[in-house]
Design a protein around this nucleic acid. Sequence first.
DNA 1: GGGATCAAGTCTTGTATAGGATATAAGATA
DNA 2: TATCTTATATCCTATACAAGACTTGATCCC
Lengths: 259, 259
Amino acid sequence: MNDPVVTPPPAAAPSTVSAPAAKPALGYQPLYRQVKDELIRRIAEGVWGPGAALPSEPQLAQELGVSAGTVRKALDEMAVEHLVVRRQGKGTYVGRHDEARILFQYFRLIPDQGERQFPDSLMLEQSAARATPEEAAVLGVPVGAAILRMRRKRSLGGEPVIVEDITVPLDLFPGLDTMEIPNNLYGLYADGFGVTIGQAVERLKATAADAEVAAVLGVSPGTPLLGIDRLAKSLDGRVAEWRVSLCLTLRHHYLSEMR
Amino acid sequence: MNDPVVTPPPAAAPSTVSAPAAKPALGYQPLYRQVKDELIRRIAEGVWGPGAALPSEPQLAQELGVSAGTVRKALDEMAVEHLVVRRQGKGTYVGRHDEARILFQYFRLIPDQGERQFPDSLMLEQSAARATPEEAAVLGVPVGAAILRMRRKRSLGGEPVIVEDITVPLDLFPGLDTMEIPNNLYGLYADGFGVTIGQAVERLKATAADAEVAAVLGVSPGTPLLGIDRLAKSLDGRVAEWRVSLCLTLRHHYLSEMR
DNA sequence: GGGATCAAGTCTTGTATAGGATATAAGATA
DNA sequence: TATCTTATATCCTATACAAGACTTGATCCC
């Protein structure tokens, strides 16, 4: 009946044993981490889709053959990483890439005065192509692999503030090049293709606007812009998107909190 | 003997009771959070100085009149916030603002190629003064309060990359204006004045170098610079420092990770 | 119908206990 | 002396149990 999906407790009776494994060998991982990896694997595989409710903690514990406390510790870590959302009295849910979450997790450009808000998008260019050596290196695909390039203008409160170039590997998103592209891309990645963005790294530089970007943003060439080079990875660690944003920071700023 | 420092368990025997408090009132805080606050308070007050070893978990538990698991949960959160450092087999220590910690926690300007490193500093100007209305508003002190202004040039690998203006309220750091200022300011705040920086917020903008800054950095005026406006707060919530940095991002970038 | 009350299900918090893992120092042995 | 073993102190992992807090839905009463 009991079917430990993770590394089964050492031997015989799974009910009374407590040790995680006989050997504290090199690749040793605590039980709760094995549970966490297993749960992440299931989410990445789509066993539970975005927004779906996970089984209750006692259910998961029994199914995985571990104690409730161990499941709890795994879920706690996942909640910190926004992979799941827990609501007391209701249940634990797979995290969704809705606008609210994007806004507070991935979008850091805030008006100097006023509320932070989700930006509008206007597609400027869009073309399926073959990966250049640079694109291939960044995305982790072979040179010549099918990719999609997009350029969007994004506005906050009606004011254009960002020009962003997005490059994605098409093998992760088959058919994306023939689809209507929504404002919230990460939501589409997750709901439409089962690719959940789990981590992103941004590198920021100050640059000067070239003629083309300046025209789009309605400023003069040479205006200082905040350049953001973002690499977004999916839950299984693949690079899912390369995004270069040029931001006008006259009346907005990039927020970075450190505790 | 037993002396619950936090909200004591409801009544009589602290050994068998389990409930945190009779009322789930409005200002209800879980026990482990009360424990955490108490521990932070002690650190902020200097009961345990920077780098000092805290009592062991069982000792703290007994002293505070709670279970070891509750102390553990409080310390876990504090470890995440870098307030304490835990070492298995050794003990739990108050976090120190040494260069290694600053480097990975507060200093995000990284060379495009090569290792991240701690910057050198050269003091350009330094003057005790009275707070202007703007400074007073930012620092949360009365207009005219004693402050110290500093301007430093900072270099990475011998290359000047940052000009930073630092403003601090002198009531928090009495005598700082007559001291030798070290490279690592946060270490001095903590070790010399018992003021631990616990949180910082940065607002980033792209700007153009003015003549003076350009001269210091060895670039031409108008060169795009990354402007960082940082407010650093001490453990008790006071604004302890206002720092405006102008960074040359030709061969460096600001790193921002989001998980 | 509308509102209050209750019960069930779930996450959340707190306690207790046991053993594993790690670091250090003292002692035993070759 | 040098090395190994043991003991001790500490944090780390895992389990079990109990009760609080929140949400939801059903029931009851007016």
